[in-house]
Simulated scan of single mutants.
Amino acid sequence: MSLDLFAPIAAAYTAGTGKDISTFRYEDAPLSSPVIVISGVILYLVAVHGGAYLMRDRKPFKLNGLFRIHNLLLTIISGALLLVFIPEIIPLLANGPHYALCSAKAWNSRLEFLYYINYLIKWYELLDTAFLVLKKKNLEFLHYFHHSMTMALCFSQLHGRTTVSWVPITLNLGVHVAMYYYYYRAAGGHQMWWKKYLTTLQITQFIIDLACVYYCVAKRITFHYLPHLSTGDCEGGGWFAGYFGAAILTSYLLLFIHFYFKTYKRPAAAVNKKKQ
C-alpha cells in the first residue's frame, strides 16, 4: 500500500473549509486576481527601490538570526512540497511524456491545489529582497526581476491551466532546497565552496524547463498554423500562458548565464592574466 503524502493536506483543507479538496478552484482562493498580481509586482518594485533609497544613509541591520530562520524555513517547505508533488506526477508520466506535458486531462484538483500553494510561497519569497535591502546588500537586476516575475509566472500558469507546470515547479523546488540551505549555512558564517555549482544547477534547470515548454508551444503552433507538419496538439494550457512562460524562462536562462560569466569566469580570467 503506497503512502499518500497528499492525504494530510486534503484532511487539513477539509477541516479548515468544510469542503472536499476535489472542489478546490484557485479562482475562489486569496491572491487569485490578475489585478492583485500586477499590483503586487508594482508595489514590490517600488518597495525595493524605495527601501534602498531610504537605507542609503543608514547603517545596515544585521538580522542574521531572522535571515537564517527564513532560509531554513524555505528549505524545509520546498523539500516537503517537492515530496508531495512526486507521487502526484508519477501517474501522469505512466501515460507517456506527451500526456504528462500536453494533455488537459493531466490537470486535476490535487495538482491545482499544489500549484496554488507553490504560488503562495512565491509571495513569501519576496521577503528575500527585504532582507537584502535592510542589510544593504547589493541588489542586482537579476534578483528583483527573477523574484517578481516568478510570482507572476506561477500565477499565469495557474490561471492558464498549463499541464507542463509540474516541470518548472518541481525542478525549481529541488533547486530551492539546495539554494536556501546554502544561504542558511552561509548566513551562519560557514564557507560554502559550491556556490558556482548551485548557479550551474539553476542554469541546467532552465534548459530542461525550456526544452519542455518549447515542445508544448511548438506542438500547439504547428497544429493550428502548420498542420502539414503537425503530429498532434498540445491542448493543456492557454496561448498567453504558453508564450509568457517561454519568454520569462528564456530571459531567466540568459540572465543566469550572464551572471555565471560575470561572477565566475571574468574574475578567474583576470586572475590568470595577472599571473602571466
Rank of each mutant, 00 (worst) to 15 (best):
T75K: 03
I169Q: 07
H70G: 06
L210W: 14
H224R: 15
L81N: 04
L101F: 12
Q276S: 10
L210G: 02
I257D: 01
I208H: 12
S165E: 06
S2F: 05
E112V: 06
L126I: 15
T204D: 00
Y264K: 02
S103H: 11
M149A: 13
K59N: 06
S33H: 07
K196M: 15
A7N: 00
N64A: 11
F259Y: 11
Q191F: 15
I248Y: 02
C102V: 05
R68I: 06
K219V: 03
K265H: 11
F259K: 02
Y183L: 13
W166M: 12
N172Y: 06
F259H: 10
C234R: 01
A178C: 13
Y116M: 06
G65N: 09
L31K: 00
L249C: 05
L93E: 14
T14K: 06
C234S: 14
A47T: 01
R185Y: 08
I248R: 03
T17I: 04
Y225T: 11
I21P: 07
T163A: 06
S33M: 04
G51K: 02
F206T: 04
A80V: 13
G96T: 10
I77N: 09
A268H: 03
I36V: 09
I208K: 08
Q157G: 11
V213E: 03
L66C: 03
Y44H: 06
V164A: 13
Q205C: 07
V271K: 13
T199L: 11
K274P: 05
K135H: 05
I257N: 07
V37S: 00
A211H: 12
I117H: 01
G237Y: 01
H224L: 13
D128H: 12
I169A: 04
P267K: 07
L132H: 02
I117V: 15
M149D: 05
I86A: 03
A241I: 14
S39F: 01
D4V: 07
K137T: 14
I208L: 11
I36K: 02
V217W: 15
F61S: 01
L82R: 03
A94V: 08
N64L: 04
